[in-house]
Design a protein around this nucleic acid. Sequence first.
DNA 1: CGCGAATTTGAAGCCCGTCAACAGCTGTGG
DNA 2: CCACAGCTGTTGACGGGCTTCAAATTCGCG
Lengths: 248, 248
Amino acid sequence: MAQPIRLRQVSPLKASCHQCSLSNLCLPLAIEENELDRLEDIVQQGRIFNRGEHIFDQSTPFRSCFAVKSGAIKTSIISENGEEQVTGFFMPGELVGLDSMGSKNYACTAKALERTSVCEFPIDKLEELTGKLPDLQHHMYHLMSQEIQGSHQLAMLLSKNTAEERIAALLLSLSSRFQRRRMSGTNFSLPMARNDIANFLGLAVETVSRVFTRFQNQGIISARGREVELLDVEALQTVTREFARQNA
Amino acid sequence: MAQPIRLRQVSPLKASCHQCSLSNLCLPLAIEENELDRLEDIVQQGRIFNRGEHIFDQSTPFRSCFAVKSGAIKTSIISENGEEQVTGFFMPGELVGLDSMGSKNYACTAKALERTSVCEFPIDKLEELTGKLPDLQHHMYHLMSQEIQGSHQLAMLLSKNTAEERIAALLLSLSSRFQRRRMSGTNFSLPMARNDIANFLGLAVETVSRVFTRFQNQGIISARGREVELLDVEALQTVTREFARQNA
DNA sequence: CGCGAATTTGAAGCCCGTCAACAGCTGTGG
DNA sequence: CCACAGCTGTTGACGGGCTTCAAATTCGCG
């Protein structure tokens, strides 16, 4: 038994970024084969978190970024007064912790919404490696700027759009992220509670609930609990652009 | 005349990051002396833009990041429908363009709010340099993560706070940024129009105007046009925390 | 099966956006 | 030098979308 275990500690772990079905979404994206090996040298794979467990906590020392392999994670910041703001939902293939890069402590708390497995990238080794691999550094810049852009989009959604538009946008965002993983873009299960949706979109829980039933009555979606089916994607896209048309 | 000019092309330009009063805010922060020289090799200094001129435009090829030397810049994104969202205001010592890092095109448009001078960092050279200088790379990561965090704070402000709280927060933010430059934190001139404030904070212009007069009637501030004096900073800080107290 | 949490539904109130009109400031041209 | 236009900022009135409060109902898990 000893030998097989030893082998597993080296070979399968090293090979797994190559084999990972998410390698086209995660960090290895656009990296040369031989460079991928060096990334695998620093990654700690296969950590598992149960629903509700914290991957890391705000204001604790920043040690690592995490790539979601399966499951889902929500990040949130707690202001001095204890008010929570959900800042993002992270699906498989997405990188958590970029908002803490270059800082001493984590800027937010990351919590598993369901049973979730992640790959861990120790930040000191990651920074060292990005210094050696220009493509990887470029990709890190890209991912971080994407996060900034996404946050700006969210700010736009929050400041200019109605409840219906915000929820339609979230459903479409989730849909495209499921599709990217070759899963159904019209029939999926929401990883987060209504409460999290409301907090993320800056709405009251009751409003979220009402919009869901309204969409259902209009035949745009079909929802029972967290199970959602998008019946009329075009109608949803119309809703998100509705506001624009009126103010054109 | 020829010789002095030649000398100026080398010596004063190279020395200017050292001499710049903003060097403790901008990129050179926390960089070794000899490394600062290499940063100066790639920077193009002293470009001037008049009020209203664009530093760069959304969807045009991303070439450079810009550090504000004097004046002020606003960045905004235009959605497909033509709706504008102001994403940030940039004061001297702050770096513009981080949301486009690693992308092919600029993610937003940057516009001078007043006569503004900037230092330009060509992105290809900057990326190359950050690959060689770990401290500089670390600082870039830090600046970008700060931008993500700031954007999350904005989202929180937009989704949970009243008009008064948002405007109080903006005034306090501007105040501390003026103070950082050794300028008065209680008596300053707003670089942006009411319209920009409203757009940035997700409010109607009329609401911004009303809150300004309300603050004035309460003796918290004194404002005439863009000239603002903070008469009671503590009261402003209380306003921003008011919401929290009620929901504690 | 039973309890607490999550979700849904209803009713009432309020903050803020919209519409409208006015005032203030700036620059231009007669 | 003043008049006018255009833009920016201010003030008032009104309506609507969302929050809040309250309670019923369902869901989830031991």
